Amino acid sequence: MNHQLTSTQAFWLGHLYHAHSLGLSLSAYAHDQGLRFADLMTWRQRLDVQHISLPPMHRPNRFVAVEVRP
């Protein structure tokens, strides 16, 4: 579905794609850019509800493999 984006939608969508292209989590990206994480997530949800194509979220591994030796 084609949408004519408002300047505000384009602003936040640009940030979402930039975070994805850098391979950063949205929280890390927001911190680096001086944005509020809550604002970034709010706009991600708004754009999703409007069926605007979003980049996948980068989710860093939360667990690492360890080897236990007896």
Rank of each mutant, 00 (worst) to 15 (best):
A10F: 02
H58M: 04
T8Q: 11
P70C: 01
Q45D: 12
A30G: 04
T6D: 04
L13Q: 05
L16W: 03
F11L: 13
R69N: 12
S21H: 14
W43H: 14
Y29Q: 02
I52G: 01
S21A: 11
N2A: 11
L5P: 09
A38Q: 13
H18P: 05
V66P: 08
V49M: 09
P70D: 09
R69I: 15
R44P: 01
A38K: 12
S25E: 13
H58Q: 06
L35N: 05
H18K: 11
V68T: 08
L40R: 02
R46Y: 12
F11T: 05
R44G: 02
R44F: 08
A28R: 13
V68W: 09
L24C: 06
L40V: 14
A65F: 11
P56H: 09
Y29K: 03
A10Q: 15
T6E: 11
H58P: 00
H20Y: 15
L5V: 10
M41L: 14
G34N: 03
N2P: 07
A30I: 03
A28G: 08
M57R: 14
Q45H: 14
A28S: 12
Y29M: 02
P70I: 04
T6K: 07
N2I: 06
A38S: 14
V64P: 00
T6H: 06
H58F: 08
W43S: 02
M41R: 12
A28C: 08
T8S: 11
Y17D: 00
Q33E: 13
Q45V: 07
H18M: 07
H31I: 03
L35H: 07
F37C: 05
P56V: 07
Q33W: 06
L40Y: 08
H58K: 09
H58E: 01
M41V: 13
P60A: 13
M1T: 00
R62W: 03
H15W: 01
Q4Y: 07
A19V: 01
M1P: 06
A65K: 15
D48L: 12
F11R: 09
H15R: 10
Q45G: 04
A28P: 00
D39K: 13
A10N: 08
S53C: 14
Y29F: 15
H31P: 04
V64F: 05
H20V: 01
R36H: 09
D48E: 15
F37L: 05
L22G: 05
R59K: 13
Y29V: 02
L40E: 01
H15F: 00
L47F: 09
P55E: 06
L47G: 12
G34K: 02
N2V: 07
L16P: 02
S25A: 15
N2R: 13
Y29D: 00
H31V: 06
M1I: 00
M1E: 05
F37M: 05
Q50A: 15
I52M: 10
H3P: 05
H18V: 04
P60S: 10
R69C: 03
V49E: 12
P70A: 10
V66M: 09
N61K: 15
A28Y: 01
H15N: 10
R46P: 07
L5R: 01
F37H: 13
R44M: 00
A10W: 10
Q45A: 14
G23P: 06
M57T: 10
D39S: 15
A19T: 07
L40M: 12
V68G: 05
F11M: 10
H3N: 12
L54F: 10
A28V: 11
V66L: 13
D48K: 15
L40W: 05
